[in-house]
Nucleic acid binder design. Structure first.
Lengths: 156, 156
DNA sequence: AGCCGATAGATGACATGTCAACAAGAGCGG
DNA sequence: CCGCTCTTGTTGACATGTCATCTATCGGCT
């Protein structure tokens, strides 16, 4: 770590742009979700992952892994969502320690009500602003970075 | 909002990839910063913005605007950083309400110690994984989205 | 000067996230 | 079947972020 390789001007612009976009997009999307559907982004993500599952249910740790959340965070969050009747917990029949997170009817209604507006906002503020090439580039680039960060042993 | 235009497969992959990359990159960068320099990402951002400034000082609200933070958040965070002697507050000579955030010597040492490792991590996990074209695309695309979200009236 | 709406920043209550510690099973090896 | 260790999920303490509110001041207007 003698003379660090700083970012050149273009790299710098891209990096700062990425972080600024990230922040602004987050603010906008969470504002939209809360206003139109009364959900936070984390709420939406939980409901969305659950609703895409065959029986609207998942083992807590399975859900935590998919979301890249700690079990603790998920457990706390589920307690809060439980109080609003968006999800329930059931005991796992095959593992006495386990608990299964289940989407409630209210939860299903909430995600179905929220989804169209959310997708529209994602389009309006990101996807529809990109050319098809850019969408493809974003796809490629993000998955390369993901592979790196999840230790997909292959390159370097 | 009759029949929403859902994301097609490529768009979906790009969007999910973006979010997953975001999360993984955050985890990695904040882990690295904390481990090697004892700073959180927010700490780093504050110090970094301050250190790029002529006199290592900024009006609180100016700093908040640059960072896209609420004044409240910044005020709380500065109090915490103040306890660690990374920053101080001074009264603003031209505005009796104002307060000026100043980088302390400890703060300067902290950012200078942290920067090389942080930049290296950014390179290693993002920038150096991209082709020059991809860096250019990221630059272009993020700034277009930023323009949209900050209401740069021009298009649509 | 004196009023008044707007702005700067601080603060307290509360929501959310992190971390370390814990209880209860699982599951393997004797 | 027992004992050991690992995993699962919960919990409480604490760090961080948000929101509403408060005080002091600014700055234009009369």
């Amino acid at each position: 770590m003698d003379e660090p390789r700083w970012l050149d001007e273009r790299e710098q612009r891209a990096w700062r742009g990425y972080r600024r976009m990230r922040r602004l997009l987050d603010l906008e999307l969470s504002r939209q979700l809360m206003r139109d559907a009364g959900l936070s982004e984390p709420d939406y993500d939980v409901l969305s992952d659950l609703s895409e599952t065959p029986d609207q249910r998942l083992r807590l740790s399975e859900l935590a892994d998919r979301m890249l959340w700690s079990r603790s965070r998920l457990s706390h969050h589920l307690s809060r969502m439980h109080q609003r009747d968006l999800v329930t917990r059931e005991e796992c029949p095959t593992d006495g320690r386990g608990s299964i997170v289940v989407l409630t009817p209210d939860g299903r209604r909430a995600i179905e009500a929220a989804a169209p507006g959310h997708v529209a906002a994602v389009r309006q503020n990101l996807i529809d602003l990109l050319t098809p090439d850019e969408v493809a580039a974003l796809d490629a680039l993000t998955h390369r970075v993901i592979a790196r960060l999840t230790g997909d042993r292959a390159g370097t």
